[in-house]
Design a binder for these strands. Sequence first.
DNA 1: GTGAAAGCGCTAACAG
DNA 2: CTGTTAGCGCTTTCAC
Lengths: 338, 338
Amino acid sequence: MKSTTIIDIAKELGISKSTVSRALSGDTHNVKPETMKIICETAKRMGYQRNEMAVNLRRQTTRNIGIIIPEVVTSFFMNFIQQAQKELRKQGYRTIIAVSNENPELEAENLQMLEQCRVEGILISVCHKNKNASLYTSIVRHGIPIVFFDRRVEGIEASVVCIDDYLMAFFMVERLIRSGCRKIVHMKGPEHISNGHDRYRGYRDALEKFAIPYDKRYVIKGGLSAEEGGAAIEEFLSQGLEFDGLFGFTETSTLGAKSLLQKKHYRIPEDVSLCCISGTTLCTLVHPMVTAVEQPVNEMATLSCQLLLSQIADPNVARESVILRGHIEERESTLTKQ
Amino acid sequence: MKSTTIIDIAKELGISKSTVSRALSGDTHNVKPETMKIICETAKRMGYQRNEMAVNLRRQTTRNIGIIIPEVVTSFFMNFIQQAQKELRKQGYRTIIAVSNENPELEAENLQMLEQCRVEGILISVCHKNKNASLYTSIVRHGIPIVFFDRRVEGIEASVVCIDDYLMAFFMVERLIRSGCRKIVHMKGPEHISNGHDRYRGYRDALEKFAIPYDKRYVIKGGLSAEEGGAAIEEFLSQGLEFDGLFGFTETSTLGAKSLLQKKHYRIPEDVSLCCISGTTLCTLVHPMVTAVEQPVNEMATLSCQLLLSQIADPNVARESVILRGHIEERESTLTKQ
DNA sequence: GTGAAAGCGCTAACAG
DNA sequence: CTGTTAGCGCTTTCAC
């Protein structure tokens, strides 16, 4: 039952454990090739698996990376995790995943847990633009690098990888306008999530670009969940305002709104056009009437990991802010032609 | 930067590190209350965080649990992970998550990776009924307990927690029949996933119960993805057969089928009724026209963790097979009245 | 090139 | 109740 150690191998071959250790960690410079060979062979034969814990204890590292995501409803974050894990495992890192459930207190708890697990770095998509800002700073000060992804925070000296939400929003709204919509509702995201504001700006600028007057009654709070989205559009309808298009904040809330509209016998492609920014192909597949652009989740994950690892390797490396453009081809939008 | 250890505390107080260790691990029986108190206080004051790696090395454990899920599209598995993580963390375990992507080879790779991470137990929802069976057995033989959840495997001496797919399927199809459907298509799941067969049996028995003749042309392969679901129903339609109801295998493939039908101008509640078994409330919220029963994912996760932990604590504990009944109330179905 | 020895932080006998 | 001691498995000086 007990697994074989370098001592077992050393005994088996009648040599010292130091040599075995050197050979097994690929130190070609200090081990004779033939010794090397025989050690590797017996190691394989005896089914040796090196004990990471002993290595980590000795080296004073954990090889743990923490990932905090805000929710698990959308597959965007799951895809991010999958890709990030793949990337990190390649470099010999384990991942500890935690979910904040859009709740800053839970997020703080998770961060403390990760610090206690002695993670060497953290990837986080925050649930609030500034509520835990001082905690982030304190962690970074403790020498644990953080990379923020998808959602930005204010005033932290850390790397950030996100998507050009402004451009994507502009593009989606532009598409609605070009397809004939003139009275477009925007179910705005919360101000405490960076993307909420960016997408709102995209909405406003697209309207302006096409000389459609902005009417603040058409901007409603859509929340994050399907329930909230449905409730939001229901309240809007109760005001008796006309509308022919809707640009939601999250995929989930947009689908919630769609569901409610259908219940009220709206036909989606004819009475009203819907769009949102989606983290998944599922949305467009399953809801062809809801237009969506896909977020480049894999690039985001890969890049976030790279930035984090480079910071772990060299704490003094420069912080970077990367804005991924997503899958919008430039010619598709007039925004870049301005 | 270097974190405080029990030795630092011992020196600070001029006592031995053993006493500190005992006190900090809550050994009230062997430490004088006042010593205890002062140790805990200085520990807190000095910001002591115990080094799990050293503990694990000493105790010869890792406190790692591996979880393997087949996919990340449905939120069912994400919810499972979230709940399981919560449960396991309470007991001081970390989780390592891997995704097999419905691919047995990838699953095997993941299992090996987990074994190398020296996990103390594995929770797995397999992607194939028997392809990796010998690997599962070998892992169990190595002393690493496995609990299978949601999808059963054949011939492994291990605990299993799953849902009564047969009953749920029976219930859903019965509901279609009672609402007037007579020609019900079943998009059957793959034979290599246990639930596929169970749900198919539920479909058949429900038809029989209501004396509706079984027509094998109405049972089609629906696959797992939205694309496959759409393609499957499209092929069915090309045969020119009439139908008024559909019972899908996965939520995703059912939604794919729904989407295709809508594209072909079917009105879902009137022309045809759809249903499936869903792992999430999202489905029913967002697609009110698709009836679905919800799987008890939290109970499943909690129970799976309990079974796993009890096996870790005592390797000789009896294996259990639990079938959760889900949220169907008995009086809702005639099945149990037979 | 290789070996001997120290030690990472902690726990668990064993003595007292 | 507390201290001493011996490691867990590994890396890494420092000798030879």
